[in-house]
Write a protein that binds this DNA or RNA. Structure first.
Lengths: 383, 383
DNA sequence: GCATATATTTCTATATTGCAAGTAAAGCAA
DNA sequence: TTGCTTTACTTGCAATATAGAAATATATGC
């Protein structure tokens, strides 16, 4: 099974590889590109010309260095040459962003989902596309969902939506004449961090998300790990604290129980005997309230242990944290750092924890990134 | 750093890729090869001829299927065309095997290390090479060590030997006119399992070893993960049981404390008040002795938890167990399986645990496998 | 035997590549 | 200003690699 997938080495044309390299590594000299791609400068000139002519590439003219010789004209993509739509679906809302070729946000919009019927969800996506449209067409639309996806087109299983075997890409394409790419939300986010975000430049890193749940994605050898395991949220119930609270599945002190917004709220509510919002929990803790502080300190320690476990077992030095439930780090970062150190070999590299503070919108950017990636090959070919 | 490594896409000639594919996937039809490598059959014929002429390949003539048409003549490597030496160094011994091109063991030998002086260790390796030599020359020698290795030549750090910055490959090559390749022991073992062992055919899997210590290796996207992290033994002190014994570093219930031969012996000795061997512990447990059983059951559960953690965080479905300290599995396999299930999402695939029962010798085979891999490129070119 | 089926090889036009030589665009030194 | 030097990139050309098509090899079935 998995060996066959890997054996089908997807052929990538040199043009595609060039386009991808320039997209990811920004303004970059031809000589560097030639080395990276293992091509001669002559070939590079030839490959780059149609992309320059087609308007996808531009030559940057910056004579910053006072060096001698003919000044370099690094290649770069014209980021505004294309526009993409990224949509993240949760159980009750659709969050959309439009982005340029580098997944930089242009506009955003949110709509509630009236139901989990495919037709209703598609209608919301179509409305979002209409609302966010401008004179520039969408080159592709990316949609990300928590759950398992096959072929980048069909949602095999999405617990929050109650979906199994839903042909979402087909359904959206029937309404909008634009290619639609569907992907697991964490896989999409990891891809976005890899190409455009905090993981840029790293061949191996992990992504941990904290919000309504805990998500976990992995990039190894410059490729996102997207096996069927990836869609299952396997980092979501990792045991972290044998004295912690229970999650809804009955795991004591698992990552969901220790870290998610609902669980943190619930713990504080139980202790205080009255309802509180997550923001209020953060305020209380900042003000030194012992219950809120205790809960968040335990969360900080648990997150540190999770990061250390990930670094040890996935053998990564870099961990990107993302999601809307990371506000507590301002308060208990020290606990997290201490927990990482405690579970880490003193000879091992210090884990590089990177914080993506863009909150929920990064999910939608992830969806857009998937659309960008899927489009790059054809862009390089068709201009 | 790591991005540069990955960006230097090591060019592999089509011949090398063909040779590797045939080596790993045994007798294999040209048509299948063409598909896997993304080449036409015409190209395949042309690439295969020099390898057939050079004697590295043979055509298998097996008309097993009664199908119509010209019978296929699958390609295979002549496994006995080359001979390799693999040496595993521990703190006090050198274990060597000779193998064919498929890392199958031919002869083996063990020698104690008289000291940790480089000259003494090299002398032992040279003696082993002489003892195991026959009329066929060694195409390459692989040496594996617990610790960090750079460039496949220099041992940066080997705690068991007390080495730092020792140019082992150079030192051995000075005595034997054969290319020497040095690698971390777990990385080498993972490579061997991937190409020739229980991991054959899997793109993603983990290797866990239990013996004097706990080792952990990872294969992702058909590549062994061999960052600097890989040599550190980061799976060695993974927390598994908050009520377990302490390891020598003071971790309570870590994988070393729960699983290694010395720790299991020590636990039983403390309870019994007298020295016992590991084999005796296994006998006692088999006979129903409560202390030995309790220790081994805890070990089985701990191993299961470790396997589940690895499967969850490294996102692998397959885990290969190897090493000389797995005897207890015969007795407490049920505990291990139960622990895996407990820490695993019910929707996730059942973890496929594969047991490499070849014990200590697989370490030396791993060293040989590294030598084979390093040789394949030149084999394909030079014949 | 002869048609049919399948596997592999040969032939040949085409495409891609790297090398080496050439051109471009700057600084620097008279 | 004019040429020399340095670095960056481009072009011409020969070598190489590739795929597609036609040819060949070797079996089965009638």
């Amino acid at each position: 099974m998995s060996s066959v997938e890997a054996a089908e080495r997807r052929y990538r044309s040199p043009s595609s590889e060039l386009a991808r390299e320039v997209l990811i590594h920004g303004p970059i000299l031809r000589s560097v590109l030639a080395q990276r791609l293992g091509l001669s400068l002559a070939t590079l000139t030839r490959l780059a010309r149609p992309l320059l002519d087609g308007g996808l590439f531009v030559e940057v003219t910056e004579q910053l260095d006072g060096a001698m010789g003919r000044p370099a004209k690094p290649l770069d993509v014209r980021a505004d040459a294309r526009q993409f739509l990224g949509v993240k679906l949760t159980g009750d809302t659709a969050v959309a962003v439009t982005t340029d070729l580098r997944a930089a946000e242009r506009r955003q919009a949110v709509r509630p989902l009236p139901s989990h019927d495919l037709a209703d969800v598609v209608a919301v996506i179509v409305e979002l596309a209409g609302e966010l449209a401008n004179e520039q067409e969408f080159s592709a639309i990316g949609i990300s969902v928590g759950g398992q996806v096959s072929d980048n087109r069909v949602i095999d299983r999405a617990p929050f939506l109650g979906w199994r075997g839903v042909p979402l890409a087909e359904a959206v394409e029937a309404h909008l004449a634009v290619p639609v790419i569907v992907e697991n939300d964490v896989v999409a986010l990891a891809a976005a961090e890899h190409w455009f975000g905090l993981g840029r430049g790293f061949s191996n890193f992990a992504v941990l998300t904290v919000g309504a749940g805990v998500g976990y994605g992995l990039v190894m050898h410059d490729q996102v790990v997207s096996t069927s395991e990836a869609g299952l949220g396997l980092g979501g119930h990792f045991p972290l604290d044998p004295t912690g609270p229970l999650c809804f599945l009955g795991h004591r002190g698992c990552s969901t129980a220790m870290l998610t917004i609902p669980s943190i709220r619930a713990q504080v509510e139980v202790a205080l005997g009255e309802p509180v919002t997550y923001a209020q929990v953060l305020e209380l803790a900042s003000a030194g309230h012992p219950v809120a502080l205790a809960v968040l300190r335990a969360a900080g320690t648990a997150l540190g242990r999770l990061i250390a476990a990930v670094a040890n077992l996935a053998m990564v030095e870099h961990v990107v944290l993302a999601g809307e439930g990371l506000g507590f780090l301002d308060i208990v970062r020290a606990e997290m750092d201490a927990a990482i150190l405690a579970d880490r070999d003193p000879e091992a590299a210090v884990v590089d924890v990177l914080l993506d503070a863009s909150g929920f919108i990064s999910w939608a950017q992830g969806a857009a990134a998937i659309a960008i990636q899927a489009t790059m090959d054809t862009l390089a070919a068709g201009g």
